[in-house]
């Protein structure tokens, strides 16, 4: 694969990952053995119909949940058997989340929302300054003191992207980032993600069911019934 020379180590390295849920007596096999490698600087879309396990996979990649079996290396760190508090540190340092519903805290302004991950990190120096820089990088340098309800949907999602970037994570994990936006705002958010990927080499994993979003990715992974259907790159 020309995009992934052997010398470069994958930032996400998943081997035979499974996840079972128990609903009463019934076992739901959400993931049934996933092998996946994502390399630094890639922009990858994970697609699939609802119930295909893409949310579960995203929760695994995002270290929000632990797999039933299999190995997961994130940035060369074996995370599949870390404890809750260790996972929290990994989420804080290595992963930037962008959610469909932005998930900004309504009481505080943009800059404080962006600075929120910094509060939970080891290095709490210059929090405002770092948050300001992140906001400027998503083009919201003039909206720093605005509260979420004073911002449009697209602007809120850009604040959320700034928040995801503020700790300079290894990957940016976006779950339906345009799902709640009108087409124009959605386009702007996608352009921002593409710009981050191209100009700053940010590794981005997109979860979406929207083909017009997935088309921006260099690679699309199709999930079906907890398995990867077409692991090959779409050229």
């Amino acid at each position: 694969m020309e995009l992934t020379p052997q010398a470069v180590k994958p930032v996400i390295d998943v081997h035979n990952l499974t996840k079972d849920y128990y609903i009463g007596e019934i076992v739901v096999r959400a993931l049934r053995g996933i092998d996946l490698q994502i390399f630094p600087g890639e922009m990858v879309a994970i697609m699939g119909p609802s119930g295909s396990g893409k949310s579960t996979l995203m929760n695994m990649i995002g270290c929000l949940d632990s797999p039933t079996s299999g190995d997961y290396y994130l940035d060369s760190l074996r995370v599949s058997d870390l404890h809750d508090d260790e996972l929290a540190i990994v989420r804080n340092q290595k992963i930037g989340f962008v959610f469909q519903k932005y998930n900004l805290l309504p009481r505080i302004d943009a800059i404080e929302n962006v600075a929120l991950p910094l509060r939970y990190s080891e290095d709490t120096s210059n929090m405002r300054q770092r948050a300001e820089e992140a906001l400027k990088s998503v083009g919201l340098g003039d909206r720093m003191r605005h509260k979420p309800n004073e911002l449009s949907g697209g602007q809120q999602q850009r604040v959320a992207i700034a928040r995801a970037l503020v700790n300079q994570p290894a990957i940016l994990l976006a779950d339906e980032p345009t799902g709640n936006l009108d087409s124009q705002s959605g386009k702007e958010v996608m352009e921002l993600l593409i710009k981050l990927n191209q100009q700053q080499n940010t590794t981005i994993v997109l979860v979406t069911h929207d083909p017009t979003v997935a088309v921006h990715a260099q690679r699309t992974i199709q999930l079906f019934d907890g398995l990867i259907k077409a692991p090959e790159a779409i050229a």
Binding site: D84, A88, R91, F99, N103, L105, P117, Y120
Partner: peptide
Amino acid sequence: TREIGLRKALGARKFD
């Protein structure tokens, strides 16, 4: 609850 979930996603530990 959602706020707590978000804070955890952003790296809050149980203690936090």
